[in-house]
Structure formats: C-alpha cells, structure tokens
Design a protein around this nucleic acid. Sequence first.
DNA 1: CGTGTTTGACCAGCGC
DNA 2: GCGCTGGTCAAACACG
Length: 239
Amino acid sequence: MMSTTSQTSVNHSLFEDQDQIPTQMEFNMPFPSTQAFPPLACHQSLKSITALLPSLSSQPASSSANFPETLFSTSVQRQREDLTSSLIGGGGGGGQLLSLNRSRLNPWAWEEVTDCLMSKRMGGGDNHHLGVSAMKMKKMKARRKVREPRFCFKTMSDVDVLDDGYKWRKYGQKVVKNTQHPRSYYRCTQDNCRVKKRVERLAEDPRMVITTYEGRHVHSPSNELEDSQSPSELSSFLW
DNA sequence: CGTGTTTGACCAGCGC
DNA sequence: GCGCTGGTCAAACACG
C-alpha cells in the first residue's frame, strides 16, 4: 500500500565559523510512508546533496561510497576532531561543518552546535578523581562528551514515530520550552548499537515531525535482515 | 514473564 | 553563584 506519502524535507546548513550565517539547503521529496524512513528512503536525495556541496566532495574520501559519512559530518564530528585530530581535513579552517540550520524551527539543533563548539574550547581530558557516585557521573559525562554524527529530518506525518526499519526503545520524554509538544528520546534496541533519535513536533506546524538521528547503526535494519538485499549496498547505508 | 513505555529525579552546561 | 533547560537514568507500570 503506497497510498499515503509523506513530504520530507532534509535541512542542512553549511558553515565554517560560529559566526558565519549558514547557507541553507533544503530538499523536498515525497516518499511512501510505508517505506523505511530516513536512512534508506532519503538515500538518493542525500546523494544529490553531496553533489551540491563541492567543499564536502573535495574532502579526503576514505572510500568511494562514503557520502553518508560525509553527510553526517555534523558539528559532532567537529568535536571529535578534537579528540582524534584526524577528521575532515584537520583543524585550522580546513574542515567544513555540516549541521542544522540556525533558525527558530530548530533552535535546539543550533544549541547542539554551540554546545560542541564550546566543549571544543574547553578541551577534553577529565579523568581525575572519582568519588563513589562519581562513577555514574563519569559515565554520563562520557556519554555526553562523545556525541555521534547527527542528521535531521522534517516530515509531515500524523504518526510521530516513522518506520525506518530499525527497532527503537523509548527512554525518555521531555517537554521542551516554547513547544506544546513533548520531545521523545529513542535508542536503538540492537546490542552494541548506540544510535539514538529524537522525535518532536514542530511548534509552528504540529503536522510536521522533526526526527533527529544521532550515530550510525552497526547493523542492518531489522526489516531488511530477512530480505536478501545486496549486502554491499546495504552496508553502505548503515550509519 | 519479557519487552516496551511512562515519568519523576538527577546532572551538566549555559546564561544572567 | 544561581536558576533554567535539555538529556539521561531507572523504577514503576502497562501490555502482549
């Protein structure tokens, strides 16, 4: 049944400096709501995005099919840059930052960006003394510190949680300021997979669902596991 | 009984 | 320093 289609917008912004106004790129594409949601359904559109991002395409490619890697080079990877000193062309302005648009539509996303930039300034390295309960805190810190690449989708849909082929477990819900709709937090149920996603509705237009993915799956979508899909192609979709 | 959701509490980070 | 806010935890709960 492909009777209903959701209108999906993929919003990205490209900017180098914190003060630089990002250039927004928006892609609209309809896709059947019954199909796997972002990662698979938007694959083709994402390809066209990279084609329009010369700065990104000029980045050193680790593999020929690395565009998801490139696309998910969000602020978080910028932060990782500090930790590994080996990402996205290194520091010193060579690295491009692909992130969410700085707008009223997703101020939370921008906060993520500034958050990462701030933490860059502060520098890592905080494994000092540990109290008894500090153990737990250190875990939380580590979890907050090392953030995964993010990717955001805007979808017009009646349902909050769209089927993207993966199994998710809800671990939290929060009412965000200036929004009447709560934000839900999901985690991939697969072992050793730390991918998370947030789902919330747009304050301006409750019909729009904002889905933010964080991290890369280390496994295939559960729906696809049984199917005999081309493994090579499938693996390139993992994120 | 296993799995997933709800929800209050807690903490870190940030702005003032 | 303090208050606010977002993100996460985990116990309690619901459901099949």
